[in-house]
Structures are given as C-alpha cells and as structure tokens.
C-alpha cells in the first residue's frame, strides 16, 4: 500500500485545521495532549516523589526504587494500555492509569538516585548542626538531589507525551488522533502533521524542562557557579540516561 500526499494544502498547513470550528482542531488536540500529560505527571509525581524521598533518605526498600526503573523500562506501553482497556473497559480512565504507571518509575528512580548521590558529609553536617530529619531532607538533600530529580521528571514527561500518543489507538484524545486517524484514513499528510507536532511538542517540553531545571537548581549544585575552579563532576552519566523516554 502506498499512501500519497494529499494534492492540495498539506494537513498541517491548512488553516481550516487550526480553527476552533474544525472537529479536531490542532490547537484543541495540543491542549488535550498537554492536559493529559500534565494530569498524569502530577499524579505520578505525587506518588513517586514522596516514596522516592522516603526510600532515598532511609535507604529502606531500596530494591523497590532500583527495580522500578527496570520494570518500567521493560514494560511494553502498548501492552499495558491494551491490558488496562480490556480489563477496565473503554473511556479515559484506563489510558490515564497507563500514563501514570509509566511516569512513576523514572521519577521514583531518579528521586532515589538523587538522594543517594548527596554528599554524606553534607547530611552529616546538617544533622550535626541540629537540623531535624525533615529539615535535613527538604533543605539539604532535596536541593542537592534536584538535578537528578528534575531529569527524572523530564524523562517522565517525555514518556507520558509519547504514551499519550500511542493511547490515541484506544480512543484517547490529543495529537495521537492525527496519527491514528490519518493511518486509518490513508491520509499521510495528516499522519505527518501529527508526527511533526508530537515531535515538536516533545522537544518543546524537553527544552522547557531544561529551562525550569536551570531556574530551580542552585548554581552551586548545577556547576554554573564554577568559573575559576574546575567544573564539578556530573553525577554518573548512567543515572541520567537510566530512565528511557521514548515510548
């Protein structure tokens, strides 16, 4: 089967598709996509960050945090979505659960890894100066773990954007609609529009996350404060790549 580009204006550039009147206007699809992404991310973070902080701070149940990353990475996203849809039924709910489940491992693992990478001398000093446990966690450990935690959130965001695209196959809204519907209708220009927009959205979110990271991470930790001394070694490259994104 060969799919030809539509002869007239490509889908992406057709103003018709950008207006509110269109059944699936592009701005609306982007909005829906972002909404699902944000929703899944917030829920996942609300679960994964406290658990990651607990495990990282106490060192208890470490195997959970370590293995969460591996399990999350090896779980086929389409399989998980299909499983939940058949199990629970149609609608938004099963797809959203899948997004949350897939966003948890990168956040959990990186929060744990971030806390583990904190210089024990700083924690020792914090306790020795009379900080209580929660003060130590939130004013010393978290700020120092923030670069890794942020990269975990970033990976989770990309994972969710990608999975939400796949979830269009089971009826979820968002930009995935263009891909799935385009394929079904043999409209390659619609497919291309969806693919380009999804890619652009992912890249944009990635860049925004990087920007956010610059804002929230102290220059003393990120290494940006270093001008005359040798640059501080970055945390292990593995902890940064360990939470694969694409889905």
């Amino acid at each position: 089967m060969i799919v030809r580009l539509a002869t007239d204006t490509p889908y992406l550039l057709d103003p018709e598709n950008w207006t509110d009147s269109a059944v699936t206007s592009i701005p609306e699809l982007i909005g829906t996509h972002l909404l699902y992404t944000a929703l899944a991310l917030v829920i996942a973070a609300a679960i994964a960050i406290p658990v990651g902080l607990f495990i990282g701070h106490t060192g208890r149940l470490a195997f959970v945090a370590i293995n969460a990353g591996n399990v999350g990475r090896s779980l086929p996203t389409l399989g998980l979505i299909s499983f939940l849809v058949v199990l629970i039924g149609g609608g938004l709910f099963p797809a959203l659960i899948a997004l949350v489940i897939l966003a948890i491992p990168p956040i959990l693992t990186s929060t744990y890894a971030g806390l583990r990478a904190v210089d024990p001398a700083a924690v020792d000093a914090a306790r020795g100066m009379g900080m209580r446990e929660l003060q130590t966690v939130f004013t010393v450990e978290v700020p120092m773990a923030l670069p890794l935690m942020m990269s975990g959130l970033r990976n989770a965001a990309l994972q969710v954007v990608a999975t939400a695209t796949v979830a269009a196959y089971v009826g979820l809204g968002g930009l995935g609609r263009l891909l799935v519907d385009g394929l079904a209708l043999n409209q390659y220009d619609r497919v291309v529009a969806g693919a380009v927009l999804v890619a652009a959205l992912a890249i944009l979110i990635d860049l925004l996350a990087e920007l956010l990271q610059r804002v929230v991470v102290s220059p003393g930790v990120s290494g940006r404060a270093v001008t005359r001394r040798a640059r501080v070694a970055h945390p292990s490259p593995l902890t940064e790549v360990s939470s694969g994104t694409a889905a």
């Binding site: 001398a121 700083a122 000093a125 020795g128 100066m129 120092m144 923030l146 102290s218 003393g220 501080v232």
Partner: peptide, 16 residues
C-alpha cells in the same frame, strides 16, 4: 546539636 559547634573533614558545606 545547635549548641555545639561541629566541623568535619572536607567541611561538609552545603553546595546549594
């Protein structure tokens, strides 16, 4: 601990 000064090897300063 707040009433006792504490100095350790490598200083243990807070990098952030």
């Amino acid at each position: 601990r707040r009433g006792i000064g504490y100095v350790i090897q490598h200083a243990g300063l807070f990098p952030h």
